[in-house]
């Protein structure tokens, strides 16, 4: 049997090879077919158990992962910071090792601390899937973003992708930068300088502070959430001023010479990083991204639990 993925864990797109990204995307398109069936369930991961450890609030990612596991017939359990032994002072490592001893095939982990999934992954032979660690990476989000772009454009090579908003604190931005550059797309970053440090050029992305220049000839605009709590640290003076200079407006999109895809990983602060009216724009694929999220996570769970390349009969 041919091995599809070369590693135990999905920790970030920095580590993943282009070929591995291609395999995950390919499988995800097959999984999306399954999701269109009247009975949206296949027995592929029957008898396998996935444990979700979400130590940060999450709506989309958590339910998306959980649905993905269930669509593949895996059993699931949930551990969170609240209502677990973590409240009694148990360490995250101890919690994981104890749950692992019950027989787990994959851990899906979200945590506010960058690198925590790396730390846990070193202590277990079980697959660890990063569902977002601090400001570091959110690989499945970037994979579903790339899937959505590929679906619309048929390819990723040569696409000009603008990521706008709070780049500095964003794990979504980092994973997309790594993933898109590996797939030979161009990445531009736009926002107020304190939220888009010049250092990001060293990733191989272009850093721009002028909206007009940033939008020139783009194929995709991806907005990122502006965290209002950042205001306290004076990364920018006010929401009002942010909107004036940095929000993407329907007028901006109107002025472009070609059609662009409008994306956002959610949750959206409508009226901050993106204007309210964009919600109605025909090229807004924000909900399509969410749908693709389930397919991508089915693909990821499948590959990292079974370790095999997808065979057509696995879809029955």
């Amino acid at each position: 049997m041919q091995k599809g993925i070369k590693r135990k864990d999905l920790l970030g797109l920095k580590e993943l090879e282009r070929g591995e990204i291609e395999i995950i995307l390919e499988t995800a398109f097959s999984m999306k077919e399954v999701l269109k069936r009247p009975i949206k369930k296949i027995p592929t991961l029957r008898g396998k158990t996935v444990c979700f450890m979400f130590f940060e609030p999450s709506t989309r990612t958590r339910s998306s992962f959980e649905l993905a596991a269930k669509r593949l017939s895996a059993d699931t359990i949930n551990i969170s910071g609240v209502g677990s032994a973590l409240q009694k002072g148990e360490s995250v490592l101890d919690t994981m090792l104890n749950i692992n001893a019950m027989g787990i095939d994959a851990f899906v982990i979200r945590h506010a601390s960058s690198g925590l999934p790396y730390f846990l992954a070193r202590h277990t032979d079980t697959a660890v899937i990063n569902a977002g660690d601090g400001m570091h990476e959110h690989p499945t989000q970037a994979l579903l973003d790339m899937m959505t772009m590929k679906e619309r454009f048929g390819k990723l090579e040569g696409l000009r992708v603008l990521i706008a908003g709070d780049i500095r604190h964003s794990r979504v931005a980092r994973s997309n930068i790594y993933g898109l550059l590996k797939m030979s797309a161009e990445v531009r970053l736009f926002g107020p300088p304190p939220l888009v440090p010049k250092e990001f050029e060293q990733f191989g992305a272009e850093v721009l502070y002028d909206k007009k220049k940033a939008l020139r000839n783009v194929d995709v605009i991806m907005g990122l959430r502006i965290q209002r709590e950042r205001l306290l640290e004076s990364f920018f003076p006010s929401i009002r001023e942010y909107r004036k200079f940095f929000a993407i407006t329907p007028q901006d999109i109107e002025n472009l010479s070609k059609d662009v895809l409008i994306m956002h990983p959610g949750p959206v602060n409508w009226g901050v990083e993106m204007d309210y009216d964009i919600i109605k724009h025909k090229n807004n694929v924000i909900l399509e991204q969410v749908t693709n999220g389930v397919a991508i996570r089915m693909s990821v769970l499948y590959h990292f639990i079974s370790g095999e390349k997808l065979d057509e009969e696995h879809l029955n």
Binding site: K14, M135, H136, E199
Partner: peptide, 11 residues
Amino acid sequence: ESFISYDRGVE
């Protein structure tokens, strides 16, 4: 603070 810290997302 450096490119490396931004890369790893560690403040």
